[in-house]
């Protein structure tokens, strides 16, 4: 893509879970399109922000450290963005953890672990949406994007899937309620993405990572898994469109695994 193509030059994007994998690639893609990107993560993303700036130029991304399980930190983060003279024009709810609850099956799942996971995977997106909406409504322009998953994904713990399904519903609700305010939403339902987390999960099961990945690739009709860069382009493709009817879209991106295999 030509560096001159910067349709999001006047836009501020907040990406959660920006410290790696899909989130990092989304930040890079949106920075490439000219947006001022706030990179929200529980870890410090300064190094990644510098790297993105070096590669794509434009406006230097701003790292912003925040524990999304804590409402106060979310509010502080939004305050900081406002104090810097910005409202969030594009909100990308990407952060999610499987958390301590992810290792336990129901009903052994600990309630505290359940609450922590749901705080990050669902409540944070609701809080951020509520806090970002007034600015979007005032300026009559906004994008709220979600990294979701199909309900049929196997082996997903209850609070994680609550977040993913919550994203789909939230996206559809916001799309219909705020269409007149030109706030558009998009939920990308993903399965089988080749991220560093997937590699760690395979390794944690004592399986050879390359062999495990080969098996996962083979499950898809396309013979491959999707990857963060491809996902980032999908988000960007949606964000730049001005067609008012393209909103509330819930796009399954799964290599045909859910319904065709």
């Amino acid at each position: 893509m030509e560096k001159e193509y910067r349709p999001l030059q006047e836009r501020v994007t907040l990406v959660t879970g920006a410290g790696g994998g899909i989130g990092q690639k989304i930040c890079q893609e949106f920075a490439q399109l000219g947006s001022h990107v706030y990179m929200c993560d529980i870890a410090n993303t300064q190094e990644i922000a510098d790297q993105i700036y070096a590669e794509v130029g434009g406006i230097r991304p701003t790292p912003i450290q925040c524990d999304l399980s804590k409402k106060e930190e979310i509010m502080n983060m939004m305050d900081q963005i406002h104090k810097e003279g910005h409202g969030v024009d594009i909100l990308i709810n990407n952060a999610a953890i499987k958390g301590p609850a992810g290792k336990q099956s129901f009903p052994e799942m600990e309630f505290e672990g359940f609450k922590l996971t749901i705080a990050i995977d669902l409540s944070a997106a609701v809080h951020l949406t509520l806090l970002a909406l007034p600015h979007m409504r005032e300026q009559k322009w906004g994008r709220i994007l979600f990294t979701a998953a199909p309900l049929s994904s196997s082996g997903i713990p209850a609070p994680y899937l609550a977040g993913k399904a919550g994203f789909v519903g939230l996206s559809k609700h916001l799309a219909s309620k705020y269409k007149e305010d030109h706030i558009k939403t998009f939920a990308l339902a993903l399965r089988h993405t080749e991220t560093p987390m997937i590699r760690r999960v395979i390794a944690s099961k004592g399986i050879d990572v390359d062999e495990g990945l080969r098996k996962m690739h083979a499950k898809s009709l396309t013979g491959r898994m999707t990857n963060p860069a491809e996902i980032a382009k999908l988000f960007a493709y949606f964000a730049v469109t001005e067609n008012p009817d393209i909103t509330g879209v819930s796009l399954l991106s799964d290599g045909g695994i859910t319904y065709l295999r």
Binding site: I118, L122, A125, V126, L151, A158, P159, L161, A162, G163, K164, A165, G166, F167, V168, G169, L170, K172, H173, L174
Partner: peptide, 11 residues
């Protein structure tokens, strides 16, 4: 309501 109902579906 929309977010919680959708979350309940997933859960």
């Amino acid at each position: 309501e929309a977010a919680c109902a959708s979350g309940v579906t997933g859960m």
